[in-house]
Design a protein around this nucleic acid. Sequence first.
DNA 1: GCCAACGTTGGC
DNA 2: GCCAACGTTGGC
Length: 149
Amino acid sequence: MPYWLMKSEPDELSIEALQHMERARWDGVRNYQARNYLRAMKPGDLFFFYHSSCPQPGIAGIGKILTASYPDPTALESDSHYFDINSTSANNRWSAVDVGFVDAFPAVIPLSHLKALPQLAELALVKKGSRLSVMPVSPVAWQSILTLA
DNA sequence: GCCAACGTTGGC
DNA sequence: GCCAACGTTGGC
């Protein structure tokens, strides 16, 4: 069972907000590499929920993938921030998945702690200049991050 | 708000 | 197919 990490700005969706929702649609991904990872996800996969662009960037908890990927409806909504003029219902370039809540950590694991873990050296999150918002996490990396939670 | 680093676009 | 210009990401 693959593990993942996905970034969200808590103003848009936080782990606390997800906790009170039946499910949420993870949409708005507009990067091909990240999209391809969405397409590789399977129901039941777990992911670390990362809070980005906020006062305390870091991993805030765990979520679960509930659906296989499907065409991202926001790409077709002309009033959406994520509207893509090059996508049509017949040929939507972008994908979304539905996610559910699993766990909220007592405290956010700060990015600085993640960077200090040698087991995470290959994780895109901690690589200089990387902006990837959806990425795979190896089982070893998953376990070592859990020890920080 | 700054800015380094990156991905995408489009002229040639 | 190259690459300059541009827009975006995201930590600080």
